[in-house]
Deep mutational scan, measured.
Amino acid sequence: MQRVNMIMAESPGLITICLLGYLLSAECTVFLDHENANKILNRPKRYNSGKLEEFVQGNLERECMEEKCSFEEAREVFENTERTTEFWKQYVDGDQCESNPCLNGGSCKDDINSYECWCPFGFEGKNCELDVTCNIKNGRCEQFCKNSADNKVVCSCTEGYRLAENQKSCEPAVPFPCGRVSVSQTSKLTRAETVFPDVDYVNSTEAETILDNITQSTQSFNDFTRVVGGEDAKPGQFPWQVVLNGKVDAFCGGSIVNEKWIVTAAHCVETGVKITVVAGEHNIEETEHTEQKRNVIRIIPHHNYNAAINKYNHDIALLELDEPLVLNSYVTPICIADKEYTNIFLKFGSGYVSGWGRVFHKGRSALVLQYLRVPLVDRATCLRSTKFTIYNNMFCAGFHEGGRDSCQGDSGGPHVTEVEGTSFLTGIISWGEECAMKGKYGIYTKVSRYVNWIKEKTKLT
């Protein structure tokens, strides 16, 4: 034993070699072989497995989906700052455009905790909710729209109204504003409101030439003092309507412009014939205590009207009353817009006519005020429907199939267009061939041609 100890002390290297040989010859039971080890760690190889990531292109799944990435790591994937920024906006807080917040056709661009709407022409605001041009839906104005110097929408209202708090709607500024039905039992019968379409306001006024200088022999019209197929109006439903009495009662109609003036057809009036105007009328054979009678003290036909040349060209006249009318729910003026808007309103496509005229061709006159909704007829169809001249200051309205029309005794009465609950004068009943005849239409004086003249002559002093 002493000898062994001496050998170990003198030859430590020998001992180490012996131990190493023993270990190498022993069977290893701690580690699995290569094949079995792979069965336990069965993990798919990654895209760049075996390579240094710093030297390969980034992978979106590896960089940002398996674990949260930084902007720089995302930049490695896209290799483009702009594309990385677009991805980053949604990656950080989701897609803010998912709810489609942009209105009126706006395009949404996502941002971090926010979004941006790219608005089409005519709109602005956070969600493109603000109209900035009158060309689109009248700028959301209830009545009139004008573009300011910086191309912003400025709404306005006709006389007797003021802008509401929203700067879009119009509200009454006087007790009985024009064009409004205020009798409670008839307010439910107000005709369907007309909503502004998209309009090209630059070209809204037709490029028409008034044929002022045409000389033409007097034409022989049949029954051209021209509501057939209409309905009984309720008291106060058309408070701007008046009836004219002269040699015979209810020979023509008219509309209240203001307390002192009536507008009617020029062919209705004769110099030297006494005319009485009755406002607030409903049943011409009954006294309903809503009527107001006034005498006409002055007749002003349009300066281009000449019955000797043509009885229905420039067929418009103004009547001055001896005493002002007292405005109330049964006696209310009709609204008159400017030339541009009167023309736009007419193009809405349908209007209402009213009167006490004959209820059928050569038949009896109506006792109760009649009204009828009539569609506008395109000019080409209008011209083809008659052998008589249709001037540019006239328009056609009615039904091709016949059966409904204005008729004798309705002449001078109103053709009105309702705009968001307020009625505007767009025409004056003038003439036609018979009444409600198939293929024939009622012919009306186009008020847009005469609004400046009306307003100039009827100013209240």
Rank of each mutant, 00 (worst) to 15 (best):
residue 3 R to S: 12
residue 7 I to Q: 14
residue 7 I to L: 10
residue 9 A to L: 14
residue 9 A to S: 13
residue 9 A to T: 11
residue 11 S to E: 04
residue 12 P to M: 15
residue 15 I to D: 02
residue 17 I to L: 12
residue 17 I to E: 01
residue 18 C to H: 03
residue 20 L to H: 02
residue 22 Y to H: 06
residue 22 Y to R: 02
residue 26 A to D: 00
residue 28 C to Y: 01
residue 28 C to H: 02
residue 28 C to K: 01
residue 30 V to D: 15
residue 31 F to V: 15
residue 33 D to R: 09
residue 34 H to P: 15
residue 34 H to K: 11
residue 38 N to E: 15
residue 38 N to S: 15
residue 39 K to P: 11
residue 40 I to T: 05
residue 41 L to I: 12
residue 43 R to S: 14
residue 44 P to R: 04
residue 46 R to K: 11
residue 52 L to E: 15
residue 59 N to K: 10
residue 60 L to Q: 13
residue 65 M to F: 13
residue 67 E to N: 12
residue 69 C to S: 04
residue 70 S to C: 05
residue 71 F to N: 14
residue 73 E to D: 12
residue 75 R to E: 08
residue 76 E to T: 12
residue 77 V to R: 14
residue 78 F to Q: 15
residue 79 E to R: 15
residue 81 T to Y: 10
residue 82 E to P: 11
residue 82 E to Y: 06
residue 82 E to I: 05
residue 84 T to Q: 08
residue 85 T to I: 08
residue 87 F to S: 15
residue 88 W to C: 04
residue 88 W to G: 15
residue 92 V to I: 09
residue 94 G to E: 07
residue 97 C to P: 02
residue 97 C to D: 02
residue 98 E to M: 09
residue 98 E to S: 15
residue 98 E to I: 13
residue 99 S to I: 08
residue 99 S to L: 13
residue 100 N to K: 14
residue 101 P to C: 02
residue 101 P to T: 06
residue 102 C to W: 00
residue 102 C to G: 00
residue 104 N to F: 04
residue 106 G to V: 02
residue 109 K to E: 07
residue 109 K to C: 04
residue 111 D to Q: 12
residue 112 I to C: 04
residue 112 I to V: 12
residue 113 N to D: 11
residue 114 S to D: 14
residue 114 S to A: 10
residue 118 W to Q: 12
residue 120 P to K: 06
residue 121 F to L: 13
residue 126 K to I: 11
residue 127 N to T: 12
residue 128 C to W: 02
residue 131 D to R: 09
residue 134 C to M: 03
residue 134 C to L: 03
residue 140 R to H: 07
residue 141 C to I: 00
residue 141 C to S: 00
residue 142 E to V: 05
residue 143 Q to I: 01
residue 143 Q to H: 10
residue 144 F to M: 06
residue 144 F to Q: 02
residue 144 F to E: 00
residue 145 C to G: 02
residue 146 K to G: 05
residue 148 S to R: 07
residue 151 N to M: 09
residue 152 K to L: 11
residue 153 V to E: 06
residue 153 V to C: 04
residue 155 C to N: 00
residue 155 C to K: 00
residue 158 T to Y: 04
residue 159 E to Y: 09
residue 160 G to F: 02
residue 162 R to T: 12
residue 170 C to Y: 00
residue 171 E to N: 09
residue 171 E to I: 12
residue 172 P to I: 05
residue 175 P to N: 07
residue 175 P to V: 07
residue 175 P to Y: 05
residue 176 F to Q: 06
residue 178 C to Q: 02
residue 178 C to M: 00
residue 179 G to N: 02
residue 179 G to Q: 00
residue 180 R to W: 04
residue 181 V to M: 12
residue 182 S to E: 07
residue 183 V to E: 07
residue 184 S to V: 12
residue 185 Q to S: 09
residue 186 T to N: 10
residue 190 T to D: 10
residue 192 A to P: 05
residue 193 E to A: 13
residue 196 F to P: 10
residue 197 P to A: 09
residue 197 P to H: 08
residue 203 N to T: 11
residue 204 S to N: 06
residue 209 T to L: 11
residue 211 L to H: 10
residue 217 S to D: 10
residue 217 S to C: 06
residue 218 T to N: 10
residue 218 T to A: 08
residue 218 T to C: 04
residue 219 Q to S: 05
residue 220 S to Y: 07
residue 220 S to G: 11
residue 225 T to R: 07
residue 225 T to N: 11
residue 226 R to T: 12
residue 227 V to I: 11
residue 227 V to Q: 12
residue 227 V to E: 12
residue 231 E to D: 09
residue 232 D to T: 11
residue 233 A to L: 07
residue 235 P to H: 07
residue 236 G to P: 04
residue 237 Q to G: 09
residue 239 P to Y: 01
residue 241 Q to K: 05
residue 242 V to S: 01
residue 244 L to C: 02
residue 245 N to T: 04
residue 245 N to K: 02
residue 247 K to D: 03
residue 248 V to T: 09
residue 250 A to P: 03
residue 253 G to A: 13
residue 255 S to E: 02
residue 255 S to Y: 02
residue 256 I to W: 00
residue 258 N to V: 01
residue 260 K to F: 07
residue 260 K to S: 01
residue 260 K to P: 00
residue 263 V to I: 13
residue 267 H to K: 05
residue 269 V to H: 03
residue 270 E to I: 05
residue 274 K to I: 04
residue 275 I to H: 03
residue 275 I to Y: 04
residue 275 I to W: 03
residue 276 T to C: 03
residue 276 T to A: 07
residue 277 V to E: 01
residue 277 V to K: 00
residue 280 G to I: 02
residue 280 G to Q: 02
residue 281 E to N: 07
residue 281 E to C: 10
residue 284 I to R: 10
residue 284 I to H: 06
residue 285 E to T: 09
residue 290 T to P: 05
residue 297 I to G: 02
residue 297 I to Q: 05
residue 299 I to E: 03
residue 300 I to S: 03
residue 306 N to V: 07
residue 306 N to F: 04
residue 306 N to Y: 05
residue 308 A to R: 12
residue 310 N to H: 10
residue 310 N to F: 04
residue 313 N to C: 06
residue 313 N to P: 03
residue 314 H to Q: 03
residue 315 D to F: 01
residue 315 D to T: 02
residue 316 I to F: 01
residue 320 E to P: 00
residue 322 D to I: 00
residue 322 D to P: 01
residue 323 E to L: 09
residue 324 P to W: 02
residue 324 P to L: 03
residue 325 L to M: 04
residue 327 L to H: 03
residue 327 L to K: 04
residue 329 S to T: 07
residue 329 S to D: 15
residue 331 V to A: 07
residue 331 V to G: 00
residue 332 T to S: 14
residue 336 I to S: 00
residue 339 K to D: 06
residue 341 Y to D: 10
residue 342 T to Q: 03
residue 345 F to E: 01
residue 345 F to S: 00
residue 346 L to W: 12
residue 347 K to L: 07
residue 348 F to E: 13
residue 349 G to H: 09
residue 350 S to H: 14
residue 355 G to W: 15
residue 358 R to I: 06
residue 359 V to S: 15
residue 359 V to L: 13
residue 360 F to Y: 14
residue 362 K to T: 11
residue 363 G to M: 11
residue 363 G to L: 08
residue 366 A to V: 05
residue 367 L to G: 13
residue 372 L to I: 10
residue 377 V to N: 02
residue 377 V to Y: 02
residue 379 R to G: 06
residue 381 T to C: 06
residue 381 T to G: 04
residue 385 S to C: 12
residue 387 K to Y: 06
residue 388 F to R: 10
residue 388 F to C: 10
residue 388 F to W: 12
residue 390 I to E: 05
residue 394 M to P: 02
residue 394 M to F: 12
residue 395 F to M: 02
residue 398 G to I: 03
residue 399 F to D: 11
residue 401 E to K: 14
residue 405 D to F: 14
residue 405 D to G: 12
residue 407 C to Y: 05
residue 414 P to H: 09
residue 415 H to Q: 01
residue 415 H to E: 00
residue 416 V to T: 09
residue 418 E to N: 14
residue 420 E to R: 15
residue 421 G to R: 13
residue 423 S to I: 06
residue 428 I to M: 06
residue 428 I to L: 13
residue 429 I to M: 14
residue 430 S to T: 10
residue 431 W to F: 14
residue 431 W to H: 13
residue 433 E to D: 14
residue 436 A to F: 07
residue 436 A to I: 14
residue 436 A to Y: 08
residue 437 M to L: 15
residue 438 K to P: 13
residue 438 K to V: 07
residue 439 G to F: 04
residue 440 K to G: 13
residue 441 Y to W: 05
residue 442 G to F: 05
residue 443 I to T: 08
residue 445 T to V: 08
residue 446 K to N: 09
residue 450 Y to I: 01
residue 450 Y to H: 03
residue 450 Y to T: 01
residue 451 V to R: 03
residue 456 E to R: 07
residue 457 K to G: 06
residue 458 T to Q: 02
residue 459 K to D: 15
